[in-house]
């Protein structure tokens, strides 16, 4: 670059941003350094801890996938159609972001609890319960994380040129074929980004999950459980183990979605 313009603003902005990054990284690094190897190994080999971490990872995958299954069609409609009450629907999609998580758990209990209408139906026809089960954990995770799925997928679809869909229809493709062969492949980044962030949001959920199901335990609840039953040293060991799994998952999924963690998701 021949013309180099140094402006004090960029130094100040970089400094402020740098502090923010440090604010994220410092606690993470500090927690790693605070570990006592013997306690870390003890907790890592503990069956309850392993189960809790597996539950978190696996159930978050399930709820992110359910969110994609129902959220992608909704996202496509929101990206393509104008209809009465559209902005109302969009607000409803964002609503879970504004509801405190324990409150979300209480709300879900009204519908999915033993005497809630969906809870009663599932109990009668499938002998399935939500309270105190993995099903309940999925419901809680889904509720708090689905806005990410819908919003990112919608952004992806909005970036697809409508004329590409139109030309596909003139070539004989039905609306579903247009969606399958043109819209979805071209919006796939948005959809995958949505899936990853939904997963990340779901795996970290504590408040809504603890109200629907203390047991079977997910990792955030296990951390809290060990903290109240034992001490900070033991619970921080569980926390660090969970953190490693989360970070690894996040990196892997981001890599799959964007073909590299260095690149930004947006163009």
């Amino acid at each position: 670059m021949k013309f180099k313009r140094v402006n004090a603003m960029y130094y100040i902005f970089s400094l402020m941003g740098g502090l923010l990054i440090l604010f994220i990284l410092l606690p993470i690094l500090r927690s790693f350094l605070a570990q006592t190897p013997s306690i870390l190994i003890k907790e890592a080999t503990d069956k309850g801890v392993q189960e809790a971490i597996f539950n978190s990872v696996f159930l978050a995958v399930v709820s992110a996938t359910i969110a994609a299954l129902f959220g992608v069609p909704l996202a496509y409609i929101l990206a393509r159609k104008k209809f009465f009450g559209k902005s109302f629907i969009e607000s409803i999609v964002d609503l879970p972001l504004a509801i405190p998580h324990t409150v979300a758990g209480i709300l879900l209990l009204f519908v999915f609890g033993r005497y809630g209408m969906v809870g009663v139906l599932f109990e009668r026809f499938f002998s399935l319960r939500f309270v105190g089960t993995k099903l309940g954990i999925i419901v809680a995770m889904l509720f708090v994380s689905l806005p990410f799925m819908v919003n990112y997928a919608r952004e992806g679809f909005e970036m697809v040129d409508v004329r590409l869909e139109q030309v596909a229809s003139t070539l004989g493709a039905t609306p579903f074929e247009v969606f399958r062969r043109v819209s979805l492949p071209l919006a796939i980044r948005g959809v995958l980004t949505g899936w990853v962030l939904t997963w990340a949001r779901a795996i970290s959920e504590f408040g809504a999950v603890i109200i629907l199901a203390y047991h079977p335990m997910t990792a955030p609840i296990k951390v809290y459980d060990v903290f109240t039953q034992l001490d900070l040293k033991h619970s921080s060991a569980v926390a660090v183990l969970f953190l490693v799994i989360c970070l690894a998952g996040f990196v892997i999924f981001r890599f799959l979605a964007f073909g590299g963690i260095g690149k930004s998701g947006k163009r």
């Binding site: 040129d161 590409l164 030309v167 596909a168 003139t170 070539l171 004989g172 493709a173 492949p185 071209l186």
Partner: peptide
């Protein structure tokens, strides 16, 4: 999709995720 009328857009609207061959054979 049921009119069998072709459309050539001003900017051609080729499918960016498909090769030329796949574009031509799309329909």
């Amino acid at each position: 999709e049921r009119r069998n009328i072709g459309f050539i857009f001003q900017d051609y609207a080729l499918f960016p995720h498909l090769t030329v061959r796949e574009n031509i054979l799309f329909g």
